[in-house]
Structures are given as structure tokens and as C-alpha cells.
Design a protein around this nucleic acid. Sequence first.
DNA 1: ACTGCGTCCTGGGGGC
DNA 2: TGCCCCCAGGACGCAG
Length: 299
Amino acid sequence: MPELPEVETVRAGLAGHTVGHLITGIEVYAPRSIRRQLGGAQELAARVTGRLITGACRRGKYLWLRLSSDGEEEDYALLIHLGMSGQVLIREGNLDEHRHLRVRFTLERPGEAGERQMWFVDQRMFGYVAAIDLIPDPHAEGYVPETMAHIGPDLLEPVIAPGSPGRKLLNRRIRRSTRGIKTILLDQELVSGIGNIYADEALWRTRLHYARPASALSAAHVNGVLDAASDVLEEALAAGGTSFDELYVNVAGEQGYFERSLAVYGRSGEPCNRCGTPIVREKFMNRSSHFCPDCQRER
DNA sequence: ACTGCGTCCTGGGGGC
DNA sequence: TGCCCCCAGGACGCAG
């Protein structure tokens, strides 16, 4: 499941392998993989064909490639959301078919022979691509396109770094809510990038039960869980992400290896690393929650 | 304003 | 051997 570390790994791969390339062609195999795009595949093709990729950006789990035309100001971005099984693969030479190939982009580097392809592959079809407008000023500090203006900053952004005024404000906003702490971690509007795996890991690290109401937590508790979430995201990023169910790989098709470092996710029945109590899996918000029933008491 | 629930989507796997 | 049902979850729309 692509969360911040996985999406950032893909972003870094795209920064290295697509920036400076022109998009010279696009083939859409699954029209449903084009979303939030008036005019659908046709409009997407019109907007990206012939454009130069000038940068690879990310906020939370949202990823976008900035596009310019003829050296002019960037005006569109190619938005890529991986959903829960999306992959972006860079292929050169090895152009074997892929069972779940949904959209294929052809890339060429000006002045260089040969082409390279960027594949959007997605088994479960929760992900999508779209060409979005870069308005009003793509060069503003901390700019994010309007399409994802509702997405909160992620834990790797300096604006909510530990000890910053932004972090203190976030802490207060979280504690104003009566919702369960895990619900808040998964809500991308307050703080983004955390999904089911890293939410469970952060809660285990801070010994908090997923359903504890945020309003009942102290500022120190909330700071603790945010710090733990930052830590686990950074550790997972350093490991190239978590390839728990083999649906996540980087742009070269390689798996990450953070799965071996998970303390609770996917470990139901196995002993807690702290106290030995078997890890429990429960349904919460129509999702699986993994936790230690001894270390993480509801009250 | 805030909260929670249903829905989308496909393929793997378990049960019979 | 084959079929059917369930499960995985990110994000958003909508009802209360």
C-alpha cells in the first residue's frame, strides 16, 4: 500500500529518470484510470503531449510532474495518485507487456537517440492520472496545485517540523477533535501521508489504542504520536518503503524492505516485541487495526 | 461544522 | 477441478 515513503521513493525515481524528457506519446488502456479530468483521456493526451517534464513533486501520497511547453512557464502538471496498488515503472529496452498496464507514456530526451517509457500500472484501479492546472503561481514558496489544496502538509515538510509553530498548531487542531486518534492520522486534511500500515506502527510505538479520542489526549501524547509517525516514515523511506503484499515497487521494479521492521502490521498472533503478548487484529473504520492488547489499552 | 459510513475496484485465496 | 464469496484500503460523496 503506497503511503508517504513509497510515494516519495517513486517521486525520487521519477526525478532521476523523467525530468528533462519530453512526453511524446500516450496510450490509455484503461479509461477509468483517468480521473478528475474533464474531457477524459483525449484531454489528458492533448495537455501532456509535447510537454517537457521539469520537476517531480509530492505532498503526502500525491505525486505530480511539472510540465512546460517550449521552455515557457510550467502550466500543467501530470498528477499521479497510486491509490492502493498503483506503480510507476520506467522501462527502457525491456518493454515486455504488463498484465495491469493502464496508461503508457513515451518519453524522449531532446538530442538523444532512443526512447524510454513510463508505465502507470495498477491492479486494483484505485489510482489515477490526470493533467491538472498549475495555478495561480507555481513558483510560490511551498506551492501545491489547487487540486490538492485540501491535503494537509506531510510530516516531512518543514512547516510542521518538531518544535515548529506549525507543529504546535497542528497539535491543537488534533486535540480539538473527538474522533479516534487513528481516524485523525488517516485523515489527509490535517496531516497527510500516513496510511493504515504506518498509523498502526506509530500507535504501537506510542502505546496508544487506535480508538482513543484525540480530545482526551495530552499535548505530549499527540506530540509523541506525531514524532513516532515521523520516525517510522523516515525509517521506511530509508528502507525504500514497505512491499508487504508485493504490489509496491519503485520505478525500477524493485521492492522495499521495511516489511521486516514492522512491529504490528501483518503480525497478528505473533508476540509483541515489547511484552510478548500476541498482536491482535481488529476491524476499525472498515480497516484492519493491528495492536498489542497489553501495551495499547483503550483506557 | 463535524463526523461516520458506503462506494469504488480487481485478483488472490479459502472453503466447499 | 471449479466456482463463489470475501478481503485488502485510499479518497471522496453524502447523510445526519
